[in-house]
């Protein structure tokens, strides 16, 4: 069986500045893959290329065995994936139920099944208390939950999640984590970016670390276990300074 994601020399620049440089990803099916990197490292750009939202500059990629660059294959791929990108794909003038109904119809989910799934997802995400509230009135966390519900609705084989826990409350975060863990156990794949290393450490089976557009580490967490914590490994990979920093001596001195 094809891997869930495979890329070779995947690159992309913006106005001559490289954002992603020759990335070779390999994500097996049924894995919970954490894609880590500091701000501006190229995580979102990579996700956007893999999901067909952005054309790559060069290189090859394969998602669930489909080439997102081929128009016919791209649609087939889109039928099998769910995406929560950085910018949330929501109609501002729709309610949560309307939004999910629209998504379900676009994925040709049959009427009764669609209504049941929407009820389940709205209840799970705690979005069913104000049915007439429009997306534009939602907080960022609520929008994130709705986008995640929309991504889960068609029951995809592969989920791309860009910072899914950002702005989400603790209760919903726990529910989402449990749902995703169950989803992966069933054999599906999750490709997620997150700044919260504890979540990645708790959920992911595999991690990739991208720094300045280059994939500097790609391994399983089990393998990483013997080489210190994920945080230490991550800070080392990104070249972050450790210990007390020079400067700011005035801070706390009450002399300013």
């Amino acid at each position: 069986m094809n891997p869930a994601i495979r890329t070779r020399d995947l690159s992309r620049s913006f106005n001559g500045t490289p954002a992603v440089r020759q990335v070779d990803l390999h994500v097996e099916r049924g894995t919970f893959y954490g894609f880590l990197g500091p701000n501006g490292a190229g995580k979102s750009t990579t996700i956007r290329m893999l999901t067909g939202l952005l054309a790559p500059g060069s290189g090859e990629m394969e998602v669930l065995g489909f080439n997102p660059r081929e128009p016919a294959e791209a649609l087939e791929m889109k039928r099998r994936i769910g995406v929560v990108p950085e910018e949330l794909p929501l109609f501002e003038g729709l309610t949560a139920r309307e939004q999910l109904t629209f998504v379900g119809r676009m994925y040709l989910v049959p009427g009764d099944t669609l209504r049941d799934r929407i009820d389940d997802l709205l209840a799970m995400m705690n979005l069913d208390r104000e049915p007439h509230k429009l997306t534009v009135e939602y907080s960022h966390g609520m929008k994130k939950k709705l986008a995640l519900a929309a991504a889960l609705l068609p029951d995809p084989d592969l989920l791309f999640l860009d910072e899914p826990f950002e702005g989400v409350d603790a209760v919903a975060s726990r529910t989402i984590r449990d749902t995703l863990a169950r989803y992966v156990k069933r054999g599906s794949t999750v490709f997620l970016t997150s700044h919260v290393l504890e979540i990645v450490e708790r959920l992911c089976t595999d991690v990739g670390i991208i720094v300045n557009g280059e994939l500097v580490e790609q391994t399983s967490l089990a393998h990483l276990g013997g080489e210190g914590s994920l945080e230490e490994r991550f800070l080392k990979a990104v070249g972050a300074p450790t210990g007390d920093q020079p400067g700011l001596d005035w801070l706390g001195s009450k002399e300013a």
Partner: peptide, 8 residues
């Protein structure tokens, strides 16, 4: 954002 939904 709706256009993003369209592309997906």
């Amino acid at each position: 954002d709706a256009f993003l939904a369209l592309v997906l």
